[in-house]
C-alpha cells in the first residue's frame, strides 16, 4: 500500500477553509495538528466531503433538546452492585454495576460508546466484537465484572487520535459496508485478525497445521474463514475481504464491476454462437 497515496497531504490553505462547524467537529473527534491533516487527507482521498462529517454532529443537535448529563446519573443497581476498574480506549473507567451487566451494555448504555453494536446479544453475529487485551472477543457474552483490570479497545478507540486506522480507511475505499451496523465489529475483528496472522495462528482452512509459519500472508480463503464470525446481512463480504487483504498484505483487488461499452455490446449482439445458442448436438 502506498502511504503517500492513501494519505495525501493537505495544505494549510485547505485547513483554513474549514468552517467553524467543521473545526468544532474535528476538535470533538480529537484531531489536532498532523493527525488532523492526515485525517483530512484521507477524507479527500476517499472522495468524502467535509460536510459528511456533519452527520456526526447530528446527534449533538438532537441531544441539545434534552440535558445530556443526566444520562450518567445512573439508576440504583441491585443490592449486590459491584465495582469494576478497567481501561477503555486508553482511559481508566471505574464503574459500579449490577453484576448482570455485560460489557456490551456497559459500553452502550453506561458509557455512551454506541459504536459497539448489539445484533443478537447471544454470540451469534459478531456485531459486538471489541478487542480485550489485544484479542477480539464478543462483548455481549463478556460479563463486565470479568473485565477487571483489562484493556478494552472499541471502534471509538481504534483511530487513537491519529486519523482513521488504516483498516477504517480501507473499509471506506472498498465499500466494505452498506448499512454500517455490523461495521464496527467487522473492523475490530479485522484489526485483531492482523495480529493473529502475524503470530502465525491457524484457521480451519489452514493446510498442514503441523507446520507453523509466522507473519502469514492470508489468502482470500483464509480471510473469509477468519471473518466468518462477523455476519453482514447487507452482504458486503467481498469488500471486507478486499479491505483486509489490502491492509494485511498490500495486495490490491481487481475492480469487479464495469459499464458495458458500446463495442462490447456490439460484439456480443453480433456473436452468432451466443445469439443462436447451442443445443446438445453442438456440444
Amino acid at each position: 500500500m502506498n502511504d503517500k497515496n492513501e494519505h495525501p497531504s493537505v495544505n494549510d490553505g485547505d485547513l483554513e477553509s474549514l468552517s467553524a462547524d467543521e473545526e468544532k467537529l474535528l476538535d470533538e473527534l480529537g484531531l489536532f495538528g498532523a493527525a488532523r491533516r492526515q485525517f483530512l487527507g484521507q477524507t479527500l482521498a476517499s472522495g468524502l466531503g467535509i460536510f459528511a462529517l456533519q452527520l456526526l454532529a447530528k446527534e449533538k443537535a438532537l441531544a441539545a433538546m434534552t440535558s445530556p448529563d443526566a444520562v450518567l446519573a445512573q439508576n440504583a443497581a441491585s443490592g449486590d452492585a459491584i465495582q469494576v476498574t478497567m481501561r477503555i480506549n486508553g482511559s481508566t473507567q471505574i464503574l459500579t454495576v449490577d453484576p448482570r451487566t455485560v460489557l456490551l451494555d456497559a459500553l452502550r448504555e453506561r458509557l455512551g460508546l454506541t459504536g459497539t453494536k448489539k445484533g443478537c446479544d447471544q454470540g451469534q453475529c459478531g456485531a459486538c466484537t471489541v478487542i480485550v487485551d489485544g484479542r477480539r472477543v464478543l462483548s455481549c457474552l463478556t460479563l463486565l465484572a470479568s473485565c477487571e483490570g483489562k484493556e478494552v479497545t472499541t471502534i471509538e478507540g481504534l483511530a487513537n487520535g491519529a486519523g482513521l486506522h488504516p483498516m477504517q480507511a480501507a473499509f471506506i475505499k472498498h465499500d466494505a459496508f452498506q448499512c454500517g451496523y455490523c461495521t464496527p465489529g467487522q473492523i475490530c475483528s479485522a484489526v485483531a485478525l492482523l495480529r493473529e496472522a502475524e503470530a502465525g495462528e491457524a484457521s480451519y482452512v489452514t493446510r498442514n497445521l503441523r507446520t507453523i509459519t509466522k507473519d502469514l500472508e492470508l489468502s482470500d480463503e483464509e480471510i473469509r474463514e477468519r471473518m466468518s464470525g462477523n455476519l453482514c446481512r447487507c452482504g458486503a463480504y467481498p469488500g471486507i475481504v478486499a479491505a483486509i487483504r489490502e491492509v494485511q498484505s498490500g495486495r490490491q483487488t481487481a475492480q469487479a464491476w464495469h459499464f458495458a461499452t458500446q463495442e462490447e455490446i456490439a460484439a456480443v449482439m453480433n456473436d452468432k454462437l451466443l445469439r443462436e445458442g447451442r443445443s446438445d448436438e453442438t456440444v
Partner: peptide, 23 residues
C-alpha cells in the same frame, strides 16, 4: 498441540468463530 495433536487443533478451529475461540 499443532505438532503432536493436529487433530485437536483442527477440531477446535472447526468450532464457532475466532472471537468465541478467544473466549
Amino acid at each position: 498441540v499443532r505438532q503432536n495433536y493436529p487433530l485437536l487443533s483442527r477440531a477446535i478451529l472447526a468450532g464457532a468463530s475466532a472471537q468465541i475461540r478467544n473466549m
